[in-house]
Amino acid sequence: MSSVARITLHNVHLSYPIYSPSNRLLRNRLLSFLLPFRKHLDPAMKPIQALRGIDLMLYAGNDYALIGKNGAGKSTLLNILNGVYQPSAGTIQRCFQHCTLLTPHSSINRGLSGLELILLYGMLLGETHTTMKHKIDEIALFAELSDSIHRPLHTFSTGMITRLLFTISISLQQDILLIDEALGSGDLAFMHKAKQRLRALAAQVMVISTHDLDVAHQLCNRGIWLEDGTVIAQGDINEVLKAYTKKYNHRMPALQSEDE
């Protein structure tokens, strides 16, 4: 385990600005400038405080599970780690080259074939065309899509596309792998295989945001419990899950594995 933190968040706050539909029109902006005595723009809405004072250090070789209710700030935190959102206050130190956020949502053209998706998605993640060409067979095999890889994506099911995107991400040299509920849409056999592959990727940091406590327990060794934009608990996965299950009267996943 490396002692260098890959990502350090210090007192990170993030507030989402909210724009009302009438404030998103150039017409109303111009009118309020030309006719200031009439009201054209809505009063500014209060921004949503999505994250408040987050302190985190993510170390290489660890797998982190982000748990918490809907709206706790899990996806926002992933977007901050991924670099698409800048904190409104606080600092973030990132020491890595490649980072991927895997989600079931994507604006990829469904007319592409599976093979073209492998090339394009790999290139979007920073690989070259030649490297991706060499990886096509390996990726198709792992994603169990060897037969349908030449078919266009609109003939694929959502689960098949997720499986393919997931396989591409873990086949590349990624320092940080962020997963937002993505494992949910794969079938059980694939999930098991993906877990094995993920466990083998020890050199990197993986952060999974999930509601499935079994997945969190089986895949991760560290837990981060978010609630209302703040970290309630972080540390060893068993400790965090114990505290979380106690509060919400959930079944503790560790007990289930002991029974088995």
Binding site: N79, N82, G83, V84, T100, L101, L102, T103, H105, S106, S107, I108, Y121, L124, L125
Partner: peptide, 12 residues
């Protein structure tokens, strides 16, 4: 607007 998801999740 069209490539919002790709901007957010893949290439920023």
């Amino acid at each position: 607007i069209q490539y919002a998801a790709m901007i957010k999740y893949t290439c920023h």
